[in-house]
């Protein structure tokens, strides 16, 4: 009796496998970070770009203020593209822009800012890329919105006009 049902069970199993593969075809096979999870900001210390003073992340961020942390580098092409948007955003008084200069040479970074303007009120230096990892970033540029010592939103890749509108609405 068992052998009579066996083929049907087998076929059923294969149909299920087929459906799995079929569904799997539409999945992305690259790393897609979870961007909507609120996380505490990481604990780390970094040097300030201008003064070379070491600061601690817990003291650096004021829980009452809204921050936008932008990871950038002078050698990163998309960073150049989003820079104008950041300049625009820096005019807004309700948000403080913080730069995290990723694996850059100080003079290159200075030239970059002289050329395109400096939207950041403070810049942290990340010479080895380790600070970016503390933030859970895996490339440049990435942007984080921080409020009450929590990362409330995370943008991977360059910002665009649409995202800027979104950020502005979040500010209100």
């Amino acid at each position: 009796m068992r052998s009579k049902f066996f083929p049907f069970i087998l076929i059923l199993i294969f149909i299920i496998i087929f459906l799995f593969f079929y569904k799997g075809l539409s999945n992305y096979n690259i790393y897609t970070p979870n961007i909507n999870v609120e996380k505490d900001i990481p604990l780390f210390s970094a040097n300030l770009f201008e003064s070379n003073v070491e600061v601690n992340s817990k003291e650096f961020f004021d829980p009452k203020k809204l921050y936008l942390l932008n990871i950038w580098s002078s050698w990163c092409v998309p960073c150049r593209d989003e820079h104008a948007l950041l300049m625009d955003l820096s005019k807004n008084k309700n948000i403080t822009l913080i730069g995290l200069n990723y694996k850059d040479r100080p003079d290159n970074a200075k030239n970059f800012l002289n050329e395109l303007g400096n939207p950041y009120s403070q810049i942290l230096v990340d010479e080895t890329g380790t600070k970016a990892i503390e933030w859970g970033a895996f490339g440049v540029p990435e942007t984080f919105l921080i409020y009450k010592n929590k990362v409330i939103k995370k943008y991977i890749g360059p910002l665009n006009q649409q995202l800027l509108v979104e950020i502005k609405s979040l500010i209100k």
Binding site: P7, I11, F14, F18, F21, Y22, L25
Partner: peptide, 15 residues
């Protein structure tokens, strides 16, 4: 999708 369907047709044929 094409190979998937083809593959499973062959599997069912052999079963």
């Amino acid at each position: 999708l094409y190979i998937l369907i083809f593959l499973f047709s062959l599997i069912f044929l052999s079963i």
